[in-house]
Amino acid sequence: MQQTVLDRADPLADDVLSLELRGVDGPLAPWEPGAHIDLALPNWLTRQFSLCGDPADPERYRVAVRHDPLSRGGSEYVHRFLRTGRPLEVSLPRNHFPLLPAPAYLFLAGGIGVTAVAPMLRAAVAAGARAELVYVGRSASAMPFADELCAAYGERVRTVVTAEEGRPDLAALAARTAPDTLVYCCGPASMLADAEAVFPAERLRTERFRPREREFAPAAPFEVACARSGRVVEVAADESLLDALAYAGLPLPSGCREGVCGSCELAVLEGEPEHRDDVGAPAGRMYACVSRARSPRLVVDL
């Protein structure tokens, strides 16, 4: 974890705060567009936020936090209780949504999803690529960075206020998008579903706030052998691997506990995991908060 202090907390839009975190022990770890960090809050919760500042600034990170009315305690704490000067621990940046090289980009952002997409637009324009952003929000006052992005990139940015215009016609947008264009989409599930319905899968990259609703076979118990510690842990059908390891005194870092952040990544040495995450676990890895085992036994690097 990296030690930071909250330097600034400024309102950006309705129910959205900008937080600037300054490194206490010197430069912070570098990051690239699409990356996020885990922020350990003083109320013992850890939450994930996309980095939306300047990757060239090694002294500080910037994130934006929308107050969720259904908050599980994270965004509510940030908005009601967090004050400047507070020391805060943050993780090293992780990036499951990297900006890949392409001659052209179409960025689709819904609401607070703009935080992941805005640094991508800046990087794409700086690289000389053709780039366009369609930014969707329920009202103009609820769209952070809208004025800043429109001022900086002019006609490259189109804002859509759904309360006045309805949702954008992504099918028409897909029909006029050149075949050499990579499409990046971050926003609510409905926007991602609309994008997945009209853009070719090989050209579409998405990042989710919440896991997709999917059905899996009934959970079964399994055994996990921890290679480095020599421990063997039984995982019951009604508990997660993450919880079973924690109860056994082998806790892993964790954030979302929903399979979307990747903070609980675990190396699998033997056995076949059943992947239930929305990150897309690389070969030989699994996310312990939601994923389980297809084989009766797993051997993990722990």
Rank of each mutant, 00 (worst) to 15 (best):
D147E: 14
A123S: 15
V63S: 04
A131Q: 06
L88M: 14
A64K: 02
A131M: 12
V78A: 01
D57L: 07
A127L: 08
T46V: 15
A127F: 04
L45Y: 13
V125D: 11
G85P: 06
P168A: 06
L149C: 05
P101H: 05
V161C: 10
L133N: 07
V136K: 09
G85D: 05
A104S: 14
E89K: 15
D54K: 09
R62T: 14
R86T: 15
L108K: 09
P87Q: 09
A171C: 03
R66L: 13
L121C: 04
A118N: 08
V125Y: 14
V157P: 06
G154N: 04
D54W: 11
E155G: 07
E165F: 00
T84I: 14
L51W: 07
P87D: 13
G166A: 11
Y77T: 03
P179L: 10
R176V: 09
V114N: 04
R86N: 10
T115Y: 01
L170Q: 02
S50F: 08
A175Q: 07
Y61D: 00
A127Y: 04
G113F: 00
G166M: 08
R130P: 00
P93D: 11
D57E: 14
A146V: 04
R62N: 06
A124G: 04
V117L: 09
G113T: 02
P119C: 08
E165T: 13
H79N: 05
T162A: 05
T177S: 12
L70P: 07
P58F: 00
A152T: 01
L170W: 00
Y77M: 01
F49C: 01
D147T: 15
R47G: 01
E155K: 11
E89Q: 14
G137V: 06
A178D: 15
Y105M: 06
D147W: 06
A142Y: 02
Y105W: 08
R83C: 08
T177Y: 06
V160C: 13
H79A: 03
E132L: 07
A131C: 12
V125G: 09
V160H: 03
L133K: 10
R47L: 04
T159F: 01
R83G: 05
R66F: 00
G110L: 03
G73L: 07
A142K: 07
P168H: 08
V136A: 11
P98G: 08
